[in-house]
């Protein structure tokens, strides 16, 4: 890894801070994902990684590339927006699928459906 360009010390500290924050939030999310007992609780754990896990690492990368190439690098914002918009969609779809399956099996822990849906 000899390609690390020299950037000011405060920049390096900020990059390191955001990197560690993002990575440890992702790890905590994954640990919780393993430890929580039911599916509906587990659905909360990955959002740690996708909110500030992604946010921290993208911030670190933006600071680093902006300082080392002397121009604004904004690719990370695209990835960040993309992930913030797509994660709720996948989680919601999965949760609805899980609800549907649990209801079809008559699982007592799940609230029943109030009404039949109009479409879809």
């Amino acid at each position: 890894m000899g390609l690390v360009v020299d950037i000011p010390l405060w920049g390096a500290i900020a990059v390191a801070f955001f990197l560690i924050v993002g990575a440890s939030l992702t790890l905590i999310g994954a640990i919780g994902f393993l430890r929580l007992p039911t599916f509906y609780e587990r659905i909360h754990a990955p959002t740690l990684g996708t909110s500030w896990g992604i946010g921290g690492i993208m911030l670190a990368s933006m600071i680093y590339f902006t300082l080392s190439t002397q121009r604004f690098v904004l690719h990370e914002i695209l990835i960040g927006i993309f992930v913030t918009v797509t994660t709720p969609v996948t989680l919601m779809l999965l949760a609805r699928a899980a609800l549907h399956r649990d209801r079809a099996e008559g699982n007592p822990d799940v609230p029943g459906k109030a009404h039949e849906e109009d479409g879809d």
Binding site: P8, A12, V15, L19, I20, L27, A30
Partner: peptide
Amino acid sequence: MSAIIIFTAVSIAQLMIGAAMAIASLR
């Protein structure tokens, strides 16, 4: 100096994310 800081931070972060990936695949 700053290169060392960044190198260390990147290595630690990669280890942590690798562990997270291992846990996710375990699940």
